[in-house]
C-alpha cells in the first residue's frame, strides 16, 4: 500500500515537471490505464468482463461487467464502471462497435462500480429504476469517499452522476430493439434485470454472480432469492452476470442461490450458538464457495452486513 502511494506521488510529480525523462520505467509502471476489450456474446451484444476481485489499486476497480447492445439508434451501454477514467476508456473501447455512438445508458443498480462512469454519458439518457436514481443521489457521495480511499488516483476527476431518466414501464424500446424490464430487489432495494428480446440474453446485474462471491452491503437475502427464482423462470438463452464470465447454462443463477442459502444458514447457526461476529468470521467455508473470487473477504464483509440484524431477529427478548 505504501509503495503504491509513493509510486503515485512520483507519477504525479513526473507529469507536472520535465523530470519525466529521468524515470521512464517508474512512470510507465505507474500509469493507470484500463485495458477494456469488448467480447461478443450474442448477436449485436458484447460484454466487458471485470476482474473477479475486490477493489484494488492494481485493478483500478474494473471488477464489473458492462454490456453493449447494438441498436439502429446506436449502442445501449448497461453499467458504466467505477470511475470517470473507466467511463472514458469504455467510450474509446466501444467506438469501433457502432458508427452511431452511444444512444442510451442503463444502470442496473446504484452501486459505485456500476454507475461511476456515467459522467462521460451525461448528455444522453441514463435510465434506471426510480428507486435506483434516488439511492444514487442520496448515497453517491459516501460511495465516492470510499472509492477515492480504496482506489486513489484511478478516481481522479470522478464526480457522482446519478441516472437522469426513470424507467416506469415493463418494456423499453431503443432504436427498434426491444427490452423487457424486470424491476426486482434483493441485492439492493432496487435491482434491474433486462432481457434483450431479439437474442434472449438476460443482463442480470448483481442479482447474478458467477465464480465471484456475491456482495451483500444492501442485501435482503429472502427477496434476493425470490428475484433469482423469477429470473430462472425467464429461461434466458444466455446471462451476463454482474460479476463473472458470460453464462450460457444458467449456472450463475444456481450458484448465487446456493451461496445465499449457505450464507444465510451459516450466519443463523452462528447466532443460534451465541457466537460473536469475530467468532463468526472464522466459520468454515465450503470448498465450492471458497474457490470463488474475492473469498474469503466477501464472506467476512457479509458477516458485518448481516449479523446485527440476524441477532435481533433470532435472540429472544428477555426484559422483565
Amino acid at each position: 500500500m505504501r509503495n503504491i502511494s509513493r509510486r503515485t506521488a512520483v507519477a504525479g510529480l513526473a507529469s507536472t515537471t520535465a523530470a519525466m525523462a529521468f524515470q521512464p520505467a517508474a512512470f510507465a509502471a505507474a500509469k493507470k490505464i484500463y485495458d477494456l476489450v469488448p467480447i461478443k456474446v450474442a448477436d449485436g451484444i458484447w460484454m466487458i468482463e471485470g476482474a473477479t476481485e475486490y477493489f484494488t489499486q492494481d485493478n483500478g476497480g474494473a471488477i464489473v461487467n458492462c454490456t453493449l447492445i447494438e441498436t439502429s439508434a446506436g449502442l445501449v451501454v448497461i453499467d458504466t464502471g467505477p470511475s470517470l477514467r473507466y467511463g472514458v476508456a469504455l467510450r474509446n473501447a466501444i467506438a469501433q462497435l457502432s458508427t452511431l455512438g452511444v444512444a442510451a445508458v442503463i444502470n442496473t443498480h446504484h452501486h459505485p462500480d456500476h454507475f461511476f462512469g456515467n459522467q462521460v454519458f451525461n448528455q444522453i439518457p441514463i435510465y434506471a429504476l426510480e428507486e435506483t436514481r434516488k439511492l444514487a443521489e442520496t448515497e453517491g457521495d459516501a460511495f465516492s469517499d470510499n472509492m477515492y480511499r480504496l482506489l486513489g488516483d484511478w478516481m481522479r476527476g470522478t464526480e457522482v452522476t446519478p441516472p437522469n431518466k426513470a424507467i416506469a414501464s415493463s418494456s423499453l424500446s431503443i432504436g427498434e430493439r426491444e427490452f423487457l424490464i424486470y424491476p426486482l430487489e434483493g441485492h439492493t432495494s432496487s435491482d434491474l434485470a433486462i432481457l434483450d428480446k431479439k437474442t434472449g440474453t438476460l443482463i442480470a446485474g448483481d442479482l447474478a454472480f458467477l465464480d465471484r462471491a456475491p456482495t451483500t452491503p444492501h442485501a435482503n437475502i429472502a427477496k434476493w432469492k425470490e428475484s433469482l427464482q423469477q429470473l430462472k423462470a425467464v429461461d434466458a438463452a444466455g446471462i451476463v452476470p454482474g460479476h463473472g464470465i458470460f453464462d450460457r447454462a444458467g449456472n450463475s443463477l444456481n450458484q448465487t442461490t446456493a451461496y445465499l442459502e449457505w450464507l444465510d444458514q451459516s450466519l443463523r447457526t452462528s447466532v443460534t450458538e451465541g457466537l460473536d461476529m469475530v467468532e463468526a468470521l472464522e466459520s468454515s467455508i465450503p470448498e465450492e464457495f471458497l474457490a470463488m473470487g474475492a473469498m474469503p473477504q466477501e464472506f467476512q464483509r457479509s458477516v458485518a452486513h448481516l449479523y446485527p440484524d440476524l441477532e435481533r431477529e433470532i435472540l429472544p427478548l428477555t426484559n422483565r
Binding site: E273, G274, P308, E311, L315, P316, L317, T318, N319
Partner: peptide
Amino acid sequence: LGKVHASIWPDRGRVRMV
C-alpha cells in the same frame, strides 16, 4: 429503548446479549 435480546448457553459457558 433498553430492550434486551439475549440467551445463555450454560453447557458451553456463554452469554450473548444485545
